[in-house]
Structure formats: C-alpha cells, structure tokens
Simulated scan of single mutants.
Amino acid sequence: MIDHLVLATPELAATVADLARQGLATSPGGAHDGLGTRNALADLGGGAYLEVVGPDPEQPDPGRPRPFGIDGLRGPRLVAWAVRVDDLDAAIAAARARGHDPGDARDMARVRGDGVRLAWRLTPLPSDVPAVAPFLIAWGDTEHPSRTAAPGARLESFAVRHPEPAAARERLAALGAADVTVERAPEPALHAVVRTPSGPVELA
C-alpha cells in the first residue's frame, strides 16, 4: 500500500503556505538531522500521507546534497513515493527474486515537535527524481505519521507516468505495487490529485 508521497521544495515555508491557500493544510513534522531538511505532513486517508520536505534553515549546510534533488529545485515537485511493508527484509528479498534490487535497508529517525522520537527502516532514497519506482519503508512499533498529520484531505488519484509503461509495471509488481496506475508519457513523472474541503489540489 502507498505509505506516503514526497513533495520536495526549495522553500518549505512558502510551499506550505501555498498549499494552505489551496485548501491543503499541513502540520509540522520534524527535522532530519544531518540531512539538512525538515518536513510538514498532511493525512491523505487510508493510512497514507503527504510529506512536504525542504531545506531546514535551522541546520548547518549538510556538506552533501540534500535528498530528493532538493538543492536543484526551483519550485515544488512531486518527486518520490513509498510503499509500506511489515517485514522490510522479506520485501527486499522478494523484490530481488523478481528481478529488481531496491537496495539494502537503513535506519532513520527524527524527533517530532512534541519531543516524540520516530524511528523507521527504509530502502535507499532515489538518487534520480522523479522516481517512478517507490522506496520501501517499515515503521515497526513507531506511531505512523498519518495519525498525527493535519487531517481533512484525501488522496483522490495517484499515477506513475513513464515512456515505457510495461517496464514500469514490471518494476512496480516486483515491489508489491502492481495496483498503482501507470500511464504513458514522454518523460518519467508522478501525478496525484488530493481532494480537500476547498476542492482538488493537483501535485505533479
């Protein structure tokens, strides 16, 4: 199942304000220490959420590129997505058996604004964005971020776009995401429509 969508931006506060003007409310997430980023979150219903991630002005320069191609962005962009699994090691092994290597698992953590520490495991974040193939994530005993993210929105549609849909579907099936819509397009892209009380918000 879709765990979350990643909307990367070069200016987190500005993007959060713009989404709010469109009716999509977010709540503060937390800082990713050492990566130079922080996020804001919106519940999308069904156990999924939107992560808006951008540079953290309160952190020093990380000395390496920020994830999701943030340093090269000129505006917000839907760049990645994650599939939630219960057993990450088993999911990695299954994907490799199907011909796709999602990479080795790594540990991550951040502290929420209320001081609660969240810890999770995931496969490597994409180096090229937008990433058609999802990364895999397992939350273990940690409270899922969707439970405390700003409510009110629902994911109306999500699609992967790729010039070779058959190849994209094969990769998604290997990662347990065969039910995700794949559309033909000249270039790889991600597209989502989020329904809010004020109407639909398009993320691309």
Rank of each mutant, 00 (worst) to 15 (best):
R121H: 07
D3I: 05
D61V: 11
P62G: 07
D114R: 03
P130V: 06
V129Q: 02
A91D: 01
R106T: 14
E156M: 11
P126E: 04
R98M: 14
P57K: 13
G140M: 07
Q59G: 04
R64Y: 12
V132L: 10
A204V: 13
L190D: 05
G29R: 07
R112P: 05
G199Y: 07
L78T: 02
D101Y: 11
R74M: 10
A91Q: 02
L41W: 00
A17Y: 08
A8T: 00
R66H: 07
D3C: 07
L19E: 06
P134N: 05
V129H: 06
T196A: 07
S157F: 08
R77T: 07
D3V: 05
S27E: 02
V193Y: 04
L78G: 01
L118T: 11
D179I: 11
A93R: 12
D107S: 13
I137C: 02
G72Y: 01
A93N: 06
T148D: 13
V83H: 04
P197E: 02
P62N: 08
S146V: 13
T37P: 01
E183Q: 12
P62K: 07
E183I: 08
L73T: 00
V116H: 13
V182R: 07
G69M: 10
A153N: 04
L44G: 02
E187Q: 14
D101H: 10
H4N: 06
M1H: 14
R96F: 07
A174F: 08
L73I: 06
A178T: 06
W120G: 02
P197Q: 01
G152A: 09
G75S: 11
L88G: 00
L190R: 02
G113F: 03
G23H: 06
E187S: 14
H144R: 07
G115A: 08
L12G: 05
R117V: 15
M108H: 14
V79N: 03
G54P: 05
G69P: 13
R171S: 13
A167R: 14
A109I: 04
H100A: 13
D56L: 13
P130S: 08
T142C: 11
D104T: 10
G103T: 02
T123E: 04
P126K: 01
R117S: 11
L7W: 04
P200H: 03
D43N: 13
S198V: 11
V194W: 00
L122A: 15
G30A: 03
D87W: 00
P67D: 11
W81P: 02
I2M: 04
R154Q: 12
H191E: 15
G45E: 05
H4C: 08
D87K: 00
V6Y: 00
D101K: 11
A40V: 02
D89E: 15
T9E: 05
D43K: 03
L73V: 01
I2S: 04
F158M: 00
E170R: 15
P55L: 09
R66D: 02
L19N: 03
I92T: 03
D114G: 10
T142M: 07
R21W: 06
S157N: 03
S127W: 13
A192E: 09
G176F: 01
